[in-house]
Design a protein around this nucleic acid. Structure first.
Lengths: 211, 211
DNA sequence: GCTGACATAGGGGTATTCCCTTATTATAAT
DNA sequence: ATTATAATAAGGGAATACCCCTATGTCAGC
């Protein structure tokens, strides 16, 4: 990976996916005039090759492309739990396609020809949203890493604690001494850096689908 | 209110909003063949007059209508925190309108002429979603009522408890005795029917925007 | 065989919570 | 005036949580 790549990936980038070279060039040029980093891809496949969960910014896609269409790209990105907003830009729009794109979670849908201002406003809003999503995601992954460091027993005790059980009840339920529960519980608080039971409950609620 | 109205409002109903009489009649007839209750309105205004937060089911709206348009109806319903899914049915669709409708939270967007099967599938899915929303909402309003019965002081203490403070710290913060905090706290647990601190934390997180 | 991680468990002490009782004061409603 | 509600506070005790310490057994990996 080159130094340039690292700089691009460190900040927000607009990933332009369009099979039409002149469309890519004019869009990247427009973004450049506003000091917005961009990177162009001539197909859904080439962007998917480049895609990774740590990219940040937003994506613009054309619908009609040789190979995977823009909608298929959306589907694949959804399957990969992509967090970047997707803006659909297309000259060949009809209502059913627009609806499908929106149902697939498109952030917005612009018909060519669109005005520069319209597109820039849309991209800037998408980048702002991306920033918010990233901040939330950083916190979530920090907590997720903490939970991954728990042993199975600690996780088990944590769940029972969060459900509102006392150490004594947990001991009975797991067939171990209250003292041992106490130790597991203390380790959970230490590893998750939770400073109170309510903080632990909040952590578990945020990550309830990842435990 | 007639007995018929009560029966209609007790269960799920499809609220058909369309200025075209024959469109209303054919849609209600179709729904009737599937034993789905429906009620027709000739304008956005007349439906809004009838609307109340306790209605359950889904809504179908045409876009182009004299008076308030379908999109304006969506805006007004959103302002009133309507929970029923809105299905947009229109014969005069263009992409920008479809996108606006979806951004306003439309559940689906069907162009006339649509097939009966297509519409029925859409309505049935919307009704299933409505059922889920209602179940969640019943629980939320039950909890909200409980929180409304709290006194100001109890609510204040509850928030500090949920933030992870000890009774002693809360007493210092509010300038009252730890003993008094203890009493407020006990009343909070009693009124919210929370059987543990973790349950109280969960209740507060669910209602965090309503406290 | 040794080390490290993990689960187990007890002793002992302090802090905190939870539950009972009683009591005073203020304010609002009847 | 009387009643009801809310906020205040204290004493006392049981249960629980939290903190220190030591200690044993297992099991994987070197």
């Amino acid at each position: 990976m080159s130094v340039t790549d690292q700089i691009i990936e460190a900040g927000q980038t607009v990933f332009v996916v369009d099979d039409d070279l002149s469309a890519r060039e004019s869009l990247c040029w427009l973004l450049n005039t506003e000091d917005i980093a961009s990177r162009a891809f001539a197909s859904a496949e080439s962007f998917l090759d480049h895609w990774n969960p740590d990219l940040t910014g937003c994506i613009t896609v054309d619908i009609r492309m040789p190979g995977k269409s823009g909608l298929q790209l959306q589907e694949e990105l959804n399957a990969r739990h992509n967090l970047m907003p997707v803006i659909v830009l297309t000259g060949h729009a009809d209502v059913p396609v627009a609806i499908r794109a929106m149902k697939l979670g498109a952030y917005d849908f612009l018909e060519k020809p669109y005005s520069d201002d319209e597109l820039l406003a849309c991209v800037k809003n998408a980048l702002a949203l991306s920033r918010e999503i990233d901040h939330a995601e950083i916190e979530i992954s920090r907590l997720a890493r903490a939970l991954e460091n728990l042993t199975d027993r600690e996780r088990e005790v944590m769940c029972l604690v969060v459900e509102g059980n006392t150490n004594k009840a947990i001991g009975v339920q797991l067939g171990i001494s209250e003292k041992t529960v106490e130790i597991h519980r203390a380790r959970v608080m230490e590893k998750t850096a939770a400073r109170s039971l309510s903080e632990l409950v909040r952590i578990c609620l945020i990550l309830k689908d990842k435990i």
